[in-house]
Write a protein that binds this DNA or RNA. Structure first.
Lengths: 142, 142
DNA sequence: TATATTGTCCTAGGACATTAGGACAGCCGC
DNA sequence: GCGGCTGTCCTAATGTCCTAGGACAATATA
């Protein structure tokens, strides 16, 4: 995690970092209150320039997933708490719409889509439970 | 549709066009065999340069949703037919993962996600049925 | 108070994307 | 065959993005 970035990808390095962190947060591997990597630690770990790491953290902060404090470090935040209900609804609806359009253009039958959704959701929850149990699974590996 | 593009958006004009067309195809408003707008027609309609319109159509062609023919025009294609099963599975899985990560970071409970998914899917199917009935609902408005 | 550590700002270069105009090549109906 | 369509290619101008290095300000720690 965070080591396997692809500099030759059209996706910017800082975006690749953001996506990986988003995934870890969604899976519960990083939880509110957890200390995150500092800008310089992240730069070393991901083998990118200090400013590229800073950019990733700034993007995460704009997304409300992280709080950066000069002299202290950066910490995971409960981003969902700061979002008002109506906005959350709108964002979820947009995400659902993107999925349905993708599935629609792929010609996925409704029945199959329902099945795959249910299966994927179960797998996601299972993974989430697995990561949450050790309480510092990912943390301790640092 | 296609008239309300935002030139000041960070999203390129040709991408905005592609997204709108993708939506129409997914909803069944544009079906395989239908004649699509020509490059110049699209340029006038969307109020963009001829080449920007051409770029959008080229992107749609790369995505396998459209077939462009010199001297004849561009036509909607059954893009799903050309995709091999394994690739289709992978694309759908990636789309599902994006949704779950988005929902996860928004803190949406699993039960609510299931409900919203089901509701959205029903709405999508209903819209699809509505658009499919007139057989040329969108077409005739040109 | 020193010193180290933290995030942040400024600047710059290189690369790429976007849009646009002009010209060209293939197809069709008269 | 001719004229009007069609999509496509070439080129240029402009803007934006990405990454990077250097310096700075705020905080914690000894």
């Amino acid at each position: 995690m965070l080591e396997d970035l692809d500099p030759s990808s059209p996706v910017p390095l800082y975006v690749q970092i953001v996506e990986q962190v988003r995934r870890l947060v969604a899976l519960g591997a990083l939880r509110p209150g957890d200390r995150f990597l500092t800008v310089r630690e992240l730069a070393v770990r991901a083998r990118v320039n200090r400013n590229t790491a800073a950019r990733a953290i700034q993007a995460l902060e704009r997304a409300g997933m992280v709080r950066a404090r000069v002299g202290r470090g950066t910490f995971i935040v409960d981003g969902a708490a700061g979002i008002e209900a109506s906005r959350r609804q709108a964002l979820l609806d947009a995400a659902l719409e993107r999925l349905l359009i993708e599935a629609g253009t792929l010609g996925v039958p409704v029945g199959e889509l329902r099945r795959r959704f249910s299966r994927k959701l179960d797998a996601f929850q299972k993974e989430r439970a697995r990561r949450a149990r050790p309480l510092s699974d990912e943390e301790n590996r640092r």
